[in-house]
C-alpha cells in the first residue's frame, strides 16, 4: 500500500516537474529551485514508501523518518563531530591551503623559471591520489585536528595553484599594454587588472578544493583520531551497528558539504558578477 502511494506521488511529482520545465515560468529563480527540490522530496517519499512497504530491515536501509529521529536525538554528538572535523580540520586547512596556493601562484607567475618548471609538476601532482599522505601527516602532527588540517592543506593547494596560474594569464596582451601606457607598476597591474581577471579561474579551483577538503578531513580520521570526529564516529558506529547514527552523520556531512560548496558559489557570484557565466541569472 505505502509503495503504491509512494509511486503515485513520484509520478505526480514527475508530471508537475515536466509541466514546470516546459511552462513559461521555467526561467524564474523560484521554479529553478522548486524543480530539483520536488525531485528530491519525491525520492525521499519513494524511499520511505519502499522501506516501510517492503519492511526492509534497518540494518540495510533505515527509513527517512527514523533518520530524522536519529538526527534529533544525537544533536550534541553531531555538533561536536561537526566542529572537530569540518570547522577545525576541514575549514582551517582549506583557508591555509588556498592562501598558500594563491601566493605561490603569484610567485610562479612572476618567475619564468618556476612557471616552466613547477607548473608541469603541479599539474601532475594535482592528478595524484594525494589523500595517501594522510597516514604520514597523522604520524607527523599527531591524532588531533592539526594532522587533518595538514592533509587538507596539501590536497587543496594544487588545484588552487594550477587554476590561479591559469587565471593570472587570463588578461590579454592588449589590456596589459593599456595598463603599461598608463604607467602602472607591476603591483598596480596585478591588483587592478590581473587579480580581478583571475577570479573566475580561482573560484573554479576553490570549488574543486571545497569538496576535496571534506574528503581529506574525514579520510585522515581513519588513520588515527581522538574519540571525536565524523570519520571516527561513522567507523565506530558501523562497528556497533548503530546505523541510524551513521546515517545521521552522513546527513550532516552531506549538508555541511553542500552548504560549504554553496557558500563558495555565493562568494563567486558576488565577486565575479561581471563574468559572462554569471550574468543573466
Amino acid at each position: 500500500m505505502s509503495i503504491l502511494v509512494a509511486v503515485v506521488f513520484w509520478l505526480a511529482a514527475w508530471g508537475v516537474n515536466s509541466w514546470l520545465a516546459r511552462s513559461r515560468f521555467a526561467g524564474l529563480r523560484a521554479v529553478r529551485i522548486a524543480i530539483p527540490a520536488l525531485f528530491g522530496v519525491a525520492i525521499l517519499v519513494l524511499w520511505q514508501g519502499v522501506v516501510t512497504g517492503l519492511a526492509v530491515p534497518e540494518v540495510i536501509l533505515p527509513a527517512p523518518s527514523r533518520l530524522w529521529g536519529a538526527i534529533g536525538g544525537n544533536l550534541p554528538v553531531l555538533g561536536a563531530d561537526f566542529v572537530q572535523t569540518i570547522l577545525k580540520g576541514g575549514l582551517s586547512g582549506y583557508v591555509l591551503g588556498s592562501v598558500a596556493g594563491v601566493l605561490v601562484a603569484i610567485l610562479v607567475d612572476r618567475v619564468p623559471f618556476l612557471r616552466a618548471g613547477l607548473l608541469p609538476i603541479g599539474n601532475f601532482v594535482a592528478a595524484l591520489p594525494i589523500v595517501g599522505i594522510a597516514p604520514i601527516m597523522v604520524m607527523w602532527f599527531g591524532f588531533d585536528w592539526q594532522s587533518k588540517a595538514a592533509v587538507v592543506v596539501v590536497m587543496v593547494f594544487f588545484p588552487v595553484l594550477v587554476n590561479m596560474v591559469a587565471g593570472l594569464s587570463a588578461s590579454d596582451r592588449m589590456q596589459r599594454d593599456l595598463m603599461a601606457t598608463w604607467g602602472a607598476s607591476y603591483w598596480q597591474t596585478l591588483v587592478k587588472l590581473r587579480l580581478p581577471a583571475a577570479m573566475p579561474f580561482l573560484f573554479n579551483g576553490l570549488k574543486i578544493a571545497a569538496t576535496l577538503a571534506l574528503i581529506g578531513a574525514i579520510v585522515a580520521e581513519n588513520f588515527g583520531s581522538p574519540t571525536l570526529g565524523m570519520g571516527f564516529r561513522i567507523s565506530t558506529a558501523v562497528g556497533q551497528l548503530a546505523l541510524p547514527l551513521v546515517w545521521a552523520e552522513i546527513a550532516v556531512a552531506a549538508l555541511a558539504g553542500s552548504v560549504f560548496y554553496g557558500l563558495v558559489s555565493a562568494a563567486e557570484r558576488a565577486v565575479t558578477f561581471w563574468h559572462p557565466s554569471q550574468r543573466g541569472r
Binding site: L214, I218, V238, L243, V246, E249, I250, G257
Partner: peptide, 11 residues
C-alpha cells in the same frame, strides 16, 4: 559531489 563520499563509504 559536495557530499564527502568517504562518509558514505562504510555504509
Amino acid at each position: 559531489q559536495t557530499v564527502p563520499v568517504v562518509a558514505i563509504a562504510p555504509m
